[in-house]
Design a protein around this nucleic acid. Sequence first.
DNA 1: CTGAAAGCGCTAACAG
DNA 2: CTGTTAGCGCTTTCAG
Lengths: 360, 360
Amino acid sequence: MSGSRRRTYSSRAATIKDVALEAGVSPMTVSRMINGKSIKLSSIDKIKKAIKKVDYQPNIGARRLSGGRTYQFLMIFSNQYIAYFSELLIGSMSACKKIGYNLLVEGVGDEESDKKDSPIDYDGIASLVDRARVDGVILLPPICFDPVLLDIVRDKAVPCVRIAGSPARDINLRVGCDSFAAAYDMTNHLISLGHTNLAFIKGPVNYASSALRYEGFVSALRDSGLKLYDSNIKIGNYTVDSGLECTLELLGQENRPTAIFAGDDQMAAGALCAAQKLSISVPEQLSVAGFDGAPISHSVWPKLTTIWQPMKTMGEKSVELLDSHLRQLELGTSDNVRTSMILDYELKIRQSTGSVPTTR
Amino acid sequence: MSGSRRRTYSSRAATIKDVALEAGVSPMTVSRMINGKSIKLSSIDKIKKAIKKVDYQPNIGARRLSGGRTYQFLMIFSNQYIAYFSELLIGSMSACKKIGYNLLVEGVGDEESDKKDSPIDYDGIASLVDRARVDGVILLPPICFDPVLLDIVRDKAVPCVRIAGSPARDINLRVGCDSFAAAYDMTNHLISLGHTNLAFIKGPVNYASSALRYEGFVSALRDSGLKLYDSNIKIGNYTVDSGLECTLELLGQENRPTAIFAGDDQMAAGALCAAQKLSISVPEQLSVAGFDGAPISHSVWPKLTTIWQPMKTMGEKSVELLDSHLRQLELGTSDNVRTSMILDYELKIRQSTGSVPTTR
DNA sequence: CTGAAAGCGCTAACAG
DNA sequence: CTGTTAGCGCTTTCAG
C-alpha cells in the first residue's frame, strides 16, 4: 500500500510554503518576491536559494484563482487566413506556456463566403475581450484594422498588442515588420533585374498594410526615376481569385508590365495562374513577386519570390510584449508609451522573378 | 462608488454556485453532474438549463487545484504539416474550451530539413507525455504512426487518441475518415470520366494512410476490370517537389497515363507543376486528383479535385473522445474497447479532372 | 443518491 | 517592508 493521499503519481510539487519554510520567511514574502513587488532587504537571496533548492514552480491554477489576473490571453484572427497564421499561433502558444499563461484563440468572420460586408460577431467578441476573462488580447491582421473591434478593445480597456505593419489608434503595443521597407526592397529587386514597366496589385483599401506595401512600391519606383502607370495599379482582396483577375486585366492591356508585385502571396499565386492561362511563361516573359512568405509561396511553380516574415517569432514576441506590459502596469510604472517591436523580414529570391525579357 | 469588491471590471463570471442557486440544488450536485458522476433523477435537466442561463464555464484553475486531473491535453504534430492542421487545431481548441480543458500543442521534427531520418526529440516528448502533466494525448498524422512515439504513449499509460485512417497498435481511440473508401470513390470518379490508364502517387511507405489510399485505388481499378501498370505507381513523400518529380517520370514514359491520382494535395500540386513544365494542359490532356482538401487545393490553377476531410470536426471529436474516455475511466466503466469515430469525407470535383482526352 | 465541511496554492486586504 | 487572515472555485472526503 503506497501511502499517497490523492494521486498515485509521483511526489507532490513544491509550494510557496516549502520555499518559505526553507528560507525562514513567511509565504507572503515569497509571493511578493515572485511578483516583483516592493523590495526586500537581504532575504531576497535566501528566497532565491530556497526556490532553487526545493525546485519551486508557481501553480497557475492557484494564482488564477486568487489573483485578479486570469492568466489567459486571447488571440483573435480572421478565419480566412487561418492556414497562414498557424506558425504565429504556435509561437504564441509556446511563449504562453513558458510564462505560465493559457492562450485562447478565436476566429472571426464567415468561413464560407467572404462576400458579405461584415460577418464579424462583434457582440461575441466583446464578451470575450474583457478583463474579467483575459488579461490581454492579440489582434492579427487584417482584423487588427477593424475600427469596430479597435473600439471594443479600447472601451474594455484591456491590454492589447497588434500584429501589424503600422501603428494605429489607441493601441500602443505592436509587433510587426517594416512593410514599407520590405516592399521597397522587393521593388528594387525587380528594378535591379532590369524591369521598368512594373505593376502592383494592392490589397483591400481599408487595410493599413496594403497601403504601406503600396507606398514602398511607389517610393522605390520614384527613387529610381521610373514611371508608374495608373493602369498598372489594381486592387485585389488577398485571394487567389482576385490575383488572377487583376493579372488578367494587367496582361490584357497594351504595353503590358513585365513584372507584377502582388500585395500578398495568395494574389501572387493567382497571378501565376493567370499567366498560365494566357500561356505566358514565368519568369521568362513575366516576373511575379509576392509578400508574406506564406506556405503557398513554395507550393506553386515556379516558387514565389517573396518577403518572408518571422511568423513564429512574431507570435512569441506578441506574448512577451503583453506580459512585460502587464508587469509594468502592476508595478505602477508609468507605461503610456507606444511600444513597437519591429522584426526583420527576408527577401526570398526564388524562381518567379527573373531578368526583363529581351524579346519584345 | 461602484460597490464591487475586488476587480473594478464588469460582472464576475458565473460559478458553480450560481448554477446551483439557479437550479435549486447544491453546488456539489452540479459538480457531480458536470463530471458525469452517478446519475441524478430529473434535476439533470434543471441543471443543464441553469448552466446555459448563467453561461457557466468551469474554472480550470480551481479544478486543477482540487482534483487529481491536470485538465490539459497535449496535441503532438509534425512541424512539416502545420499549415494543413491549423483547422484541426482550432477545432480541438474550441472543443477544449467547451469542456474546460487547456490544450498544449507540441510540434516535433526538424522544421528546416525533412531529410534527416528521425529528428524527433523523443525524450522531450516523453517528459511531456505523462499523466502528471497531461490527462490525454492527441496524435496527428504522420507521427501517429511513429512506433517509438507509440511505445512511449503506451509505457506512460496516458489516454491517447489518434487522428488517422486506420487503427494501430495498442492505441484504442481514433478519429478519422475512411481513407480506403475515399480513394475508391475518387478512382471511380476518374474511371467514370473515361480514363483507363491511371497512375497513382503513393505517400511514404511507412505511413498507414498511404497504404490505405493506395489500396482503395487498386481495388477500384480491379473492380472495374482495369489494368494497373507497375510503371504507373510512384512513391513520393507528401511534398510538392516529390509530386513534381514523380509526375515527370510518369509523363515521360510511353503510353503515359491520362489521369494521375496523388496521395495528397501537395503532391497533386506538384503534378500540376510538372504538367505545366511539360506544357501539358490540365484537365484537357491530363486529369489530376488530390487528397485531403488542404488549403493549397484551391490556391492552384486549375483548382484541385480532391477528397475533403472535415478537419475542424476531427479536431473537435478527438477532444470529445478523449474526454468521454476519461469520464468512463473515472466511473470505472470498463473501457478497453477500441473506439473509432469515422467521419464523412466529401469528393470535391473541381477543375483539375475532366474527360479522357480524345486526341491520342 | 445528496449535502456539508475542508482544503488545494496562492494572493488581496488589512493590520503591524 | 512584513505577517496574518480570508477566500478565490472547485472537488474530495465523509456523513446523511
